[in-house]
Design a binder for these strands. Structure first.
Length: 484
RNA sequence: UCCCUAGUAGCUCAGUUGGUUAGAGCGGCGGACUGUUAAUCCGUAGGUCGUAGGUUCAAGUCCUACCUGGGGAGCCA
């Protein structure tokens, strides 16, 4: 048996000392030919391994370089130094894997996030990314725990989809046909997909929602949690071409039930992270604080990461309708002084980022749930509100806006009435023939139901305080980039 | 995709109104050091100034195009 070791996290929190143990990990620094800071990823904190003088000969001592992988055995003792409680007095050190000091890119100093992104295969070995990805793991685990505890069924919706009718975004095509122009063609010159792998045109999914609705019409409450793909040329710190999305779908939930669940969900996930990732979050909070010191006063958030998370957990999300939001924005001094790039003048316009930010960061200073948007700017499957004033038709949509990152949740009560749904699909040119299976849910036992979608990376961004979404997914995909 | 901005040593940066041989810290390498904490001290190597054109007696510095990064916008999660 090879894996006979104790994890560093366990040793650092050990009450007992004076016992023999073995650790394996990667060297973070080596000082004074004597002190190895060793990390095995179980925690951001390093174990100090003390090398007695003369224990290793000159040539082996030289092999203890930053990034090298070693096994150390010895006695765990109270530390004689000040920076740590315990340390390992080594009686044997074996170098498992050398790391050439001249070419290993990660130095014991502060690197820019951009540089580390170019070294994404090695950036896990830094404090920042160690913390980020342990938090990411904890959040994923908390999501399953939350839904499982409520009796939701975890559905795996397809990654390859035949439907391209949702209009949620540009899609990546999936095909085994040759791309050199020799693919079979129809008479009109378009590609004939009859001979393609699936016998039809297929794409990578942009959303599992429609399939999720099918499952909700049997299990009552389901959720999806999987990768999603958008072929949009988006170059922002909030967008990826490949990202993970959580999409719960619930029968017998109206819009209010839906918003209640989303709020409870977000608070649960954050509370879980603050409870189980306190060390990593404390590190990230400190990192963020130092980063903000370099910014001019008006750009600082004013609230530390930990306070922000605590604040979100403890306060009710503000709930207002789109119409109320327009009134607030129109009457705001900001608008009257013409400080918006896009002034608010009429009902029906889509809100811009600056408007959302004003509502969340200036007016309410907390997360906001915006509901009942104009039907014209929302998707076909959202339920038409009843008794709307003329020319002010709205749908039962809801967006949750979070400080710092904007829209974190988008959801709605779904249109369960066949006649309304068909009318909306025709208005918006959604081909009903292709979605026959979706429409079948409205034919056979339709019911009030709702759901929402949440971008996992945006949640990780919010909790870790990382500004760029490319730094919260291990190997980010975005226009012009698919390294690793 | 559009607007703004940046690209100088392995990394983080300085480089004046265009003017001699382009600098520093960290890292690397060589050495010193038996309680260090991004260790410290001494020494040392390391650069086609993003790429291609142009202006000029002279370009790291000015102009144009392209590439790459960052910020903002749009699309959205």
């Amino acid at each position: 048996m090879y894996n006979q070791r104790t994890k560093i996290k366990a040793l650092l929190s050990s009450e007992a000392t004076h016992f023999q143990t073995t650790v394996m990990g990667w060297v973070r620094s080596f000082r004074n030919n004597q002190f190895i800071a060793l990390n095995d990823g179980s925690t951001n904190n390093n174990l100090q391994v003390v090398v007695e003088l003369g224990m290793l000969d000159e040539s082996n001592l030289k092999r203890i370089t930053i990034g090298a992988c070693i096994r150390a055995s010895g006695e765990l003792l109270p530390s004689m130094g000040k920076g740590q409680k315990v340390e390992l007095k080594a009686s044997a050190i074996e170098i498992l894997g050398d790391s050439d000091a001249e070419t290993f890119p990660i130095q014991p100093k502060r690197h820019s996030l951009e540089f580390l992104r170019e070294n994404a295969h090695l950036r896990f070995r830094t404090n920042t990314f160690g913390a980020v990805f342990r938090v990411r793991h904890a959040l994923a685990f908390a999501i399953h725990q939350f839904f499982n505890s409520k009796g939701f069924v975890y559905m795996h919706t397809p990654v390859i989809t035949g439907s391209d009718a949702e209009g949620a975004g540009e899609m990546f095509r999936v095909t085994t046909l040759p791309i050199d122009g020799s693919a079979p063609r129809n008479e009109d010159g378009s590609i004939n997909f009859k001979s393609d792998f699936f016998g039809r045109s297929t794409n990578l999914t942009v959303s599992g929602q429609l399939e999720g609705e099918l499952a909700a019409m049997a299990f009552s409450e389901i959720y999806t949690f999987g990768p999603t793909f958008r072929a949009e040329n988006s170059n922002t710190p909030r967008h990826l071409a490949e990202f993970w999305m959580i999409e719960p779908e619930m029968a017998f939930y109206d819009l209010e039930d839906n918003a209640n669940l989303a709020e409870e969900f977000i608070k649960y996930i954050i509370r879980y992270a603050t409870e189980y990732c306190s060390e990593d979050l404390a590190f990230l909070a400190q990192r963020l604080e130092e980063e903000e010191k370099a910014l001019p006063q008006e750009k600082r958030s004013g609230m530390g990461l930990l306070e922000k998370l605590d604040f979100v957990v403890k306060n009710h999300f503000e709930r207002i309708t789109y119409t109320q939001a327009i009134d607030i924005l129109r009457e705001s001094n900001h608008n009257k002084k013409k400080k918006f790039q896009y002034p608010i003048d009429q009902w029906g316009i889509d809100l811009q980022s600056e408007h959302e930010r004003y509502l969340v960061e200036k007016h309410f200073q907390k997360p906001v749930i915006l509901t009942n948007y104009p039907a014209k700017i929302k998707a076909f499957y959202m339920r038409l509100d009843e008794n709307c004033p003329p020319d002010r038709q709205t749908v039962a949509a809801m967006d949750i806006l979070a400080p710092g990152i904007g829209e974190i949740v988008g959801g709605s009560q779904r249109e369960e009435r066949m006649d309304h749904l068909l009318r909306r699909m025709r208005e918006m040119h959604i081909p009903e023939k292709e979605l026959w299976w979706y429409l079948d849910t409205r034919r056979f036992g339709s019911c009030v139901h709702s759901g929402f979608g949440l971008g996992f990376e945006r949640l990780v961004q919010f909790v870790t305080g990382m500004n760029n979404i490319r730094d919260v997914i291990a190997f980010p995909r975005y226009p012009g980039n698919a390294e690793f």
